[in-house]
């Protein structure tokens, strides 16, 4: 492969003294024995299907996978850090409430932390007693509606009796407001 030249130290043609070349070959032309297992593994790869991924492509795939995984992990961390402290459900006021399906339903609902599951539960939320105006959502407007009715002395719907004490009062308003705030904060997540 080397260029032939009469000058053994002709730098332009890249020649060197034969003795130096000979010693360099003795030094660095190792006779490296290749184990049979290595031969077999390499030749066996010929029979594998599909064909091996070229190392350059494989590297690109690993990079892409790594970046995607890192982004997903980062998103998860950011999302988890944005989670509020779980809200304690409003304390049940009566034995009836404890036994009622509504309360059981809400407790189960509050135990769920995933936003997607919260979103799916909107329909369920709409059926709870605190949805006074029947718009499918429990929010502060429900509390305002009841509060205004209580303060103005208007006729009060017995369905607004959240405490189950037989009357509609500001205590019921507080319960609705509690539920509204709790649900609003969860819905924002």
């Amino acid at each position: 492969m080397r260029d032939d030249t009469n000058n053994p130290t002709d730098f332009d043609s890249g020649e060197a003294p034969e003795a130096l070349i000979s010693d360099l070959k003795r030094l660095y032309q190792d006779d490296l024995r290749i184990p049979e297992a290595v031969d077999r593994a390499i030749l066996d790869s010929l029979h594998e299907a599909p064909a091996p991924i070229p190392w350059r492509s494989a590297k690109r795939i690993w990079w892409t996978t790594g970046i995607t995984a890192a982004a997903a992990g980062l998103t998860l961390i950011v999302w988890l850090q944005g989670q509020p402290t779980p809200q304690a459900p409003p304390p049940p006021n009566t034995a009836d409430q404890l036994a009622s399906g509504d309360m059981r339903q809400r407790s189960a609902f509050q135990a769920l932390d995933a936003p997607s599951m919260l979103a799916e539960s909107d329909a369920m939320v709409a059926s709870v007693k605190e949805d006074v105006d029947g718009d499918g959502q429990v929010n502060i407007l429900d509390a305002f509606l009841v509060a205004r009715a209580v303060e103005s002395g208007e006729s009060l719907d017995p369905a607004w009796d959240m405490t189950g004490d037989g009357s509609v009062s500001m205590t019921d308003v507080d319960l609705i407001a509690n539920a509204a705030v709790s649900l609003s904060r969860r819905s924002l997540q």
Binding site: Y28, D30, L32, V38, I42, S45, P52, P54
Partner: peptide, 27 residues
């Protein structure tokens, strides 16, 4: 294999590089 040993300085690593090189080449 000789080149791989020159680059890695380790016979076992050289065998890994030998394998990766030919798998790439066959590909």
């Amino acid at each position: 294999a000789r080149l791989a040993l020159r680059f890695t300085g380790d016979r076992e690593d050289a065998m890994d590089v030998l394998q990766e090189t030919f798998i790439y080449f066959f590909g």
